[in-house]
Design a binder for these strands. Structure first.
Lengths: 347, 347
DNA sequence: TAGAGTTTGGAAAACGTTTACATTACGTGC
DNA sequence: GCACGTAATGTAAACGTTTTCCAAACTCTA
């Protein structure tokens, strides 16, 4: 029970005294090893480890004028918060950061008006020296703000921002849904409905474009009545599917801008005794964990969020190191994962 | 394009000069407002806000000798990382912390040997001044370590640790499964199987005890062959359920120590044309998001993770403020959520 | 009005680093 | 043997706060 008053935390002075050198030398041993004679270097190093010396991060940060920390803001909606995306991203970021010796500061805030305030707090309070921005929007005030203030950041996802370019890593939603749509067309579907995402979200436009492109290339006409927009929730998928199925002419396939809505669609089908992949094909997007466990298992587009997180850190580090923005813009191609919810249209 | 060299960040000196007072006064205005005449206070405050002054956290932390940051280590298993528990917890923590003006440092590390090293890095590197410990184990080296070094922390979950008490907030798994088991018994079940969790995890023992208690009180004998242990994965639930159903005598209800395994059980049932809640009742634990979307929707025990996170912060703050450990031990009672996967046994 | 409190605000010393600059020591080439 | 680079270390000044002393300026009370 360490109740004896704790030993006077070992600082750089202590190490210096013990080694019979000045504190400058100790500091050099740790930061510029080549600038000190191997013999003394070894001695200092040995003493430092023996004493368990760890430079105080606050002294260091103050002197260097760097926060040595990067920030991530996670929007936490009021209700249930199932978004495994952030967890995977977090794992990836963590992996990348621990190598670089940076820390990760996570802030959560309700999405909406206060969101930007959350970023301001981090930036203006000098809590972080760089940021990772997730889930970009078409007109993204956060990006505008960060660019304006010259704060290093990388975005996961592109944005419609005109003018200043910024570093991003995006997963090509257009390609993803282009392929998914092609797949449905190849199976023989012609009556394809599309449940889209709120169009202020950046990825909404890309995924939609992919669908459109495939349909246009195949010269299949899209039925405007089947082009609807949900709010990404399971509930909205359910409701919109009800509407689609109530109409006189019904689609043979439904493409959904995310898995949650696709799951809602599957539920709507089940509610009428239909089964996804048989009477109606359903394809989602994201490949969230529960996509494996739906009935039937959901066909969807997979995004490698963890790798994304890891790469985002590398990019941010490069940015902090002065790399040109033009070298820091990447678009990855996602993978179509076919499970059980797609099949040929029934006659 | 803020390419004009950025204005010389406004520091306390600047504010002092502008207000015609010493930096000491400015500091006092911000930290001990009563120690300064209202008149000057207002003036300084006005200038500070006009200039957008934000105390540099590193200067402050260095001087105060406090990290003003609390840490959370998230174990990130190699594969898929669906555990929404951490996300909810994070949201709760964030909510609590932003009030207190503390920051949240998140580290991720592969579970296992390096886990303790991860804690050491945070603690010995003085990165955090307190920690939140999630998912305690029966013999938890992390708790031992933190107690040993007198690091303030609060645990989510109890532990078998002998000797020194520590602050925790636990959700009563025993109560949870006691009630779940009672519910099954009341429905008329007598042949109940139990798929448990790895018994190094702390909650495993509690949930098991709840089951045992209810069975004992009802004087229903447990069949040892039906008491099995899974690894919390969906896959292991599936496999173990197969075994149970292959035996000559089969249970009419299966209680699972977590939802993922319960989902596996449902899948195993479906694979043989059986349906959860009809031929065999299934109850899980956790109430993960996908529990709402299984077929049938999973009956389970709900844990309010977000509220937990919020309360954990309050407790940690109290601990940092010197509150006695004995005042910081809470056990909450969870809630049985009945959906569609339970029903009376079929004759 | 002197003397004793009581506010109020300033000067300066920390907190633990890093780093620009100064110093010393040591060859080396002439 | 002398000047001169070069390498290795030390000295001291930051970085931006908070806080401990003090001194000065009030406010009472007798």
């Amino acid at each position: 029970m360490s109740n004896r008053l704790s030993p006077p935390a070992v600082d750089i002075r202590r190490v210096a005294a013990e080694a019979g050198v000045s504190i400058a030398t100790v500091s050099r041993v740790l930061n510029n090893p080549d600038r000190v004679r191997p013999q003394t270097r070894e001695r200092v190093l040995e003493i430092a480890t023996r004493l368990g010396y760890r430079p105080n991060p606050n002294g260091k940060r103050l002197r260097k004028g760097r926060a040595e920390t990067i920030g991530l803001v996670i929007p936490s909606p009021p209700g249930r918060f199932a978004d495994s995306f952030f967890l995977e991203l977090l794992a990836g970021l963590g992996e990348g950061l621990s190598n670089a010796g940076l820390d990760l500061l996570v802030a959560t805030c309700p999405p909406g008006l206060e969101e930007l305030a959350c970023y301001r707090r981090l930036v203006e309070g000098k809590k972080v020296e760089g940021l990772v921005l997730a889930r970009t929007r078409r007109h993204d005030e956060r990006i505008a703000y960060l660019l304006e203030h010259d704060i290093p950041f990388v975005a996961h996802g592109r944005s419609d921002l005109i003018g200043t370019p910024f570093p991003y890593l995006d997963i090509d939603g257009q390609q993803g849904f282009y392929r998914a749509t092609q797949h449905l067309l190849n199976l023989g579907h012609r009556r394809i409905a599309y449940i889209g995402a709120p169009h202020d979200l950046n990825f909404a436009a890309h995924r939609w474009a992919g669908f459109q492109q495939a349909m246009a290339e195949a010269r299949v006409e899209v039925n405007p009545a089947w082009m609807v927009e949900g709010d990404l929730s399971e509930e909205s998928g359910y409701r919109l599917a009800q509407n689609l199925l109530d109409a006189s002419e019904t689609p043979t396939a439904i493409l959904c801008a995310n898995d949650l809505m696709a799951i809602g669609v599957l539920r709507a089908l089940r509610a009428r005794g239909l089964k996804g992949g048989q009477e109606v094909s359903v394809i989602g997007y994201d490949d969230i964990p529960q996509a494996q466990y739906t009935d039937p298992p959901l066909s969807t587009v997979h995004q490698p969020f963890r790798d994304t997180g890891k790469r985002l850190v590398e990019m941010l580090l490069a940015r902090l190191g002065g790399e040109a923005v033009s070298q820091l813009q990447e678009v990855w191609v996602p993978e179509l994962v076919l499970r059980g919810s797609d099949g040929p249209p029934q006659t």
